[in-house]
């Protein structure tokens, strides 16, 4: 599914949190949204998931507005993984994952197979029967990722899915997201970790103050100058096994 944001602006009170943003997310591609706190990453991701009212502009799904698809059909095509991973009732894990099947209305055996695939992909098959109340933060995030995978749609939009995870599971979740993209899904992910973004994303969009500063491959976009301009930090960039790693090093003096 091609998701196109055309000149979208979002107003919160009197403040514009997004200002005329254009962005395209394509199938088979892992697109990273980067930027400092308050840059508008989450708002942009929500707008791309049709969860955010926009003041102007439009988001198109394969060229059509969401209204033409309908909310329910979009729910079958596009999975959204929210940042605040709360599970309000201590349901067994497999029931949480099965919530991803709600928009489909498919027979139970079809749903069960999709749930099993999603749990295997997120590597949580071994705690199917556990109560979600007993999960650690990292385990819960993977359960919620499996919930999003169980939708088996054509797009997956994830808001900071690795923020609460240890290094092992950060790499694991990024692997899962990349695999989904390679399998043909349109994957958009909000990230704070510059190295993960540089290594895993096919393209990144760097936001600051509600605008896209730059969009392109990580090598094009994530230059020391641009990162300084966006985050206000100096970075150290190195290379290992042909891949770049980027470390935030020191804060720039406030302008």
């Amino acid at each position: 599914m091609i998701i196109t944001a055309c000149g979208i602006s979002v107003r919160r009170g009197s403040r514009l949190v997004l200002e005329g943003v254009d962005l395209v997310a394509r199938p088979g591609e892992l697109l990273g949204l980067l930027g400092p706190n308050g840059a508008g990453k989450t708002t942009l991701l929500r707008a791309m998931a049709h969860l955010q009212e926009t003041a102007s502009g439009a988001v198109l799904y394969d060229g059509a507005p969401a209204e033409r698809l309908g909310r329910r059909a979009l729910g079958r095509e596009l999975a959204y993984l929210a940042q605040s991973g709360r599970i309000h009732w201590p349901m067994p894990v497999e029931h949480v994952v099965a919530l991803g099947r709600l928009p489909h209305g498919t027979p139970p055996e079809v749903d069960a197979a999709a749930v099993a695939r999603a749990m295997a992909a997120a590597d949580i098959a071994d705690f199917a029967g556990r109560a979600s109340g007993s999960l650690s933060g990292g385990e819960k995030m993977r359960v919620l990722l499996a919930r999003a995978l169980a939708v088996e749609g054509r797009a997956l939009l994830a808001d900071e899915p690795v923020a609460a995870l240890d290094p092992y599971h950060q790499l694991h979740v990024m692997d899962v997201l990349r695999r989904q993209a390679r399998a043909g899904q349109t994957v958009v992910v909000v990230l704070h970790d510059l190295t993960l973004a540089a290594r895993f994303c096919d393209r990144v969009a760097l936001l600051r103050a509600g605008r896209v500063l730059a969009c392109g491959t990580p090598a094009e976009v994530m230059t020391p100058e641009r990162l300084e301009a966006a985050y206000g930090v100096r970075v150290e960039i190195g290379e290992r096994h042909g891949e770049r790693f980027i470390l935030p090093w020191s804060r720039l003096p406030a302008p």
Partner: peptide, 12 residues
């Protein structure tokens, strides 16, 4: 169960 945002993304 997964919050209002996720419920909406599931088509409700």
């Amino acid at each position: 169960t997964l919050g209002e945002e996720t419920a909406e993304s599931l088509g409700f």
